[in-house]
Design a binder for these strands. Structure first.
Lengths: 296, 296
DNA sequence: TAAAAAATGCAACATTTGTTTTATATGATA
DNA sequence: TATCATATAAAACAAATGTTGCATTTTTTA
């Protein structure tokens, strides 16, 4: 929002002085302003993961009479926004270069959004479901993604480690990438991610996995990708982008969906695992609760 | 409202068959659609000059279960208008225990697409352009993303290495993550990526960078993220998803856009650099186009 | 460590909400 | 006009809302 929003600014500026629960409530309001006006306080509190009373306390903390002041403010913001949209588009006066930058950015982002939206085609959804089934059945999941695909492979692996110990990330220094497969067998599955140009090493390892009897699931970019012939299930994602580079956002989206599907197979187990991970990381002081903030 | 609105059309088409009081209520709703979602039924009735019961009767007359259906519809319309169908799937019930895989996948993907599309708001585009400018000016770019954000940081770094030697990826074993900053100074910039929950180490390093005089550019998830206070420019991306986990797809999209903008600053240099990288990797036999024959 | 203070969860509270019921008014038909 | 069906207003109702006080937990201070 470009318009001055005094309440929003007040919440941000007082954020540091809030207790954890107040912060959680405040954060949710900052990030879902329209919901404040559209749902009841109790429902908002539920969605924000706090007690109803916390919302009242937040209002008082902000110096307001009660929660209704917060709601009234956000309702007013919605009433004003009716014509604010056009106004906002106009008021952006930019330099020529920035204009060009904004245009390129917009084109790229819209392209990415469209590509991810296109993954909702029935054919893709079927393959996603089949892949999730296969991954759920596997004893062990080996995740392989080299070079540009490393980010996707690692992210999948990272999320899955929050759920349990089922995945092995095939990566390592000194040419030890494939060592994880030493004890892999027919009960295991390789999740291989590779896009054009295909890293030779990825294909070799996928081939090796196949020879060892592993199931192979591929995330790749084309029906004629070499991985398609090697894989039991291949999920295709476009990598075209409006810039010089290939995009991996759709591939990342696919891997996130796979994680979501796997977690959804047993929601309770997933929740329990996540809580366990939370506690572990908490005891390690991995995350910041108190914030080293110095400047506004 | 430009979109087709079935309820509105239904009210109009049944208008002639209504009693005077029903008409008065219906007319007010047609002419003040946003008020329906923003005030209580009794207040709406008062403003419309009818009895509260008339509103309920109108709902029944339209074939709905009750007034709440009318309100829910108008709230949805506001969500639609404000977010461009973004947070829609987001808010809907997630209580269905056994959601079909296809349904969950579709929801997740649509949500991701919408979140990326939302990054095209003018405010975001401005920040992207400013960030690209700052990164282009920098002597050196240090890229920091720990834990879940590693994928984004690494991807940015990887793409940038194709363009040149300007970036340093802050990562390493044995607690050497921050060592890259040893010789960093005021002419350099830190690109820090962190989302809630914020890795303590990321914040500490960002703080250190700031103290050493580096510019700080952040990719983070909220106006109240601790990185916002530390950063010269903060680019915000939503991380909410329909599943248990946060999504990094929008953050990845942002980093890809930054790469695109940087490459676009000097297209010829970028092309030349990419060709050089291509030749190098070709001579190393990094890539394949067909299924490889395994070396023994 | 113990004591004090702050933060939080819980449950009871008075209101307010949307709905339903009942009584009254309205207007058409014969 | 008398009769009837419909439309409206008023009041009663259960369900929900936002708030508050209190007990418990957590954090800070001495």
């Amino acid at each position: 929002m470009l318009q001055a929003d005094p309440l929003r600014e007040r919440i941000v500026s007082l954020f540091d002085g809030m207790s954890p629960q107040l912060r959680q409530a405040a954060r949710y309001i900052i990030e879902h302003p329209q919901e404040v006006a559209l749902v009841s306080m109790r429902e908002l509190a539920r969605n924000a993961g706090v007690q109803p009373s916390t919302m009242t306390r937040l209002a008082k903390f902000l110096g307001l009479a009660g929660y209704d002041d917060i709601r009234a403010h956000h309702a007013e913001a919605i009433r004003f926004r009716v014509d604010g949209f056009a106004a906002r588009a106009m008021q952006t006066e930019e330099s020529e270069e920035d204009m060009a930058a904004a245009q390129l950015s917009r084109r790229m982002l819209q392209g990415l959004a469209a590509q991810i939206a296109r993954l909702t085609e029935p054919a893709s959804l079927e393959r996603l479901a089949a892949a999730a089934d296969r991954l759920a059945q596997a004893r062990r999941i080996f995740v392989l993604g080299l070079r540009s695909c490393h980010s996707v492979a690692w992210h999948f692996h990272y999320v899955m480690t929050l759920l349990g110990e089922k995945t092995t990330h095939l990566d390592g220094p000194a040419d030890t990438v494939g060592d994880g497969l030493i004890r892999a067998g027919a009960e295991d599955v390789l999740l291989a991610i590779s896009i054009n140009p295909y890293a030779l090493h990825s294909l070799e390892l996928a081939q090796l996995a196949r020879e060892k009897g592993l199931g192979v699931i591929a995330i790749t970019d084309s029906e004629v990708s070499p991985l398609v012939g090697l894989a039991d299930i291949a999920i295709l994602c476009s990598t075209e982008s409006q810039s010089f580079f290939h995009t991996l956002a759709p591939a990342l989206a696919i891997s996130e969906v796979l994680c979501g599907l796997l977690a959804n197979k047993d929601r309770n187990a997933a929740l329990a695992a996540l809580q366990r991970a939370d506690r572990h990381l908490l005891s390690l002081n991995t995350y910041a609760t108190a914030i080293p903030r110095r400047r506004i």
